[in-house]
Write a protein that binds this DNA or RNA. Structure first.
Lengths: 187, 187
DNA sequence: TGACTATCTGGATCAGTGATCCGTATATTC
DNA sequence: GAATATACGGATCACTGATCCAGATAGTCA
């Protein structure tokens, strides 16, 4: 890649990161290009779709979440490991308003730039789930996709201003449903 | 209202209903106007915002859900009544792809045309919840807004093609968390 | 050092969105 | 039948992302 191209690409990523944090995933691409002092065409050549841009921005973050799950696989408290990781996932997505919708779409769309990362994330969660199930501390009628869906739904809640204040509490409610031995009881 | 205006309004509503069912809540307003053989300005005069149009389309449906809750308030199995009604709510929203997002936004936005309907729906659910709590069959650390949020999240799942197949099952999982005495156990 | 070429750039343009303006057409009233 | 209040919709605006292509430039080779 030519040096000027590389420089533009890096600068675009930096600006896009700021814009994403400020305005969420639906931020105008033209705005990003403007703020980076670059033509819209240049932004779109480096990142042909919004998802490609997000993939470049979030790839590291995705990998980190997956790695964190791997590290927890050896925990001797698999249920706690699972719940803790799931909570981290929900918290993580709140930093990127709106990304949940794209993830939900990407998990089944092999064309999406985010597909591979999403599948890896689901697999990582599934492994934690299986360990908890084998320990008898997680219900056995759910699988990795179910857990992915629940996390996505809770993350979506966090994106809705009116419902976000309840997201943490509702995470606990849902988590209690995933685990066995904690009953569906009160606080 | 002038007779021709009334006719246009009714016709627009009919066309919009079809378009909504076909393409979801993000359907192009220009498309609706075209299919109704009417100018875009005419559609927008009758329904100044997309939400106003949806309100006109869904008002009856909203009222029906609220009424159904009221009817269930005298049930002698409050927990079953609550869960049954919540399931109906989720099923209902799946008919209008995307409406969940607008409802989540409208619940806290007094300017929204959908606000009143959403608040009524939440209140109706809250009454069913309280009855189940008083009977000792629902956990007491959740309130009407929590339940509204959970229903919204589950309805959102039903809108995501990749996750929709799990929506029914996950409803059961979440419902089990709301109730006491059913433990968080397996199927 | 200078020229050549492959690469990169961004203004201009296109089709799409919802919003708004305002001259024209028409239903209603007297 | 004439007057008027009302409704209509084409035209336009600002915005979105996508695409094209003439011009600018970085890297290379003589």
């Amino acid at each position: 890649m030519r040096a000027d191209a590389r420089k533009n690409r890096d600068h675009l990523l930096a600006v896009a990161g700021t814009a994403l944090a400020e305005q969420g995933v639906e931020v105008s691409l033209r705005d990003i290009a403007r703020r980076a002092d670059v033509g819209l065409a240049t932004l779109l050549r480096h990142f042909p779709t919004r998802e490609a841009l997000l993939d470049a921005l979030l790839r590291t973050s995705f990998d980190e979440m997956t790695a964190r799950a791997a590290a927890l696989e050896t925990s001797d408290a698999p249920a706690e490991a699972l719940v803790s990781w799931l909570r981290d996932c929900v918290t993580w997505t709140t930093e990127y308003r709106g990304v949940t919708v794209l993830m939900a779409a990407a998990i089944d769309d092999t064309e999406s730039a985010l597909h591979a990362s999403c599948v890896a994330l689901r697999a990582a969660g599934a492994r934690l789930l299986v360990r908890a199930q084998e320990a008898g501390t997680a219900r056995t009628d759910v699988d990795g996709t179910d857990v992915f869906a629940l996390v996505a739904a809770l993350a979506w809640l966090g994106d809705q201003p009116a419902l976000a204040p309840r997201a943490d509490h509702l995470f606990d409610v849902v988590a209690s449903a995933l685990l066995t031995g904690t009953a569906g009881g009160d606080a």
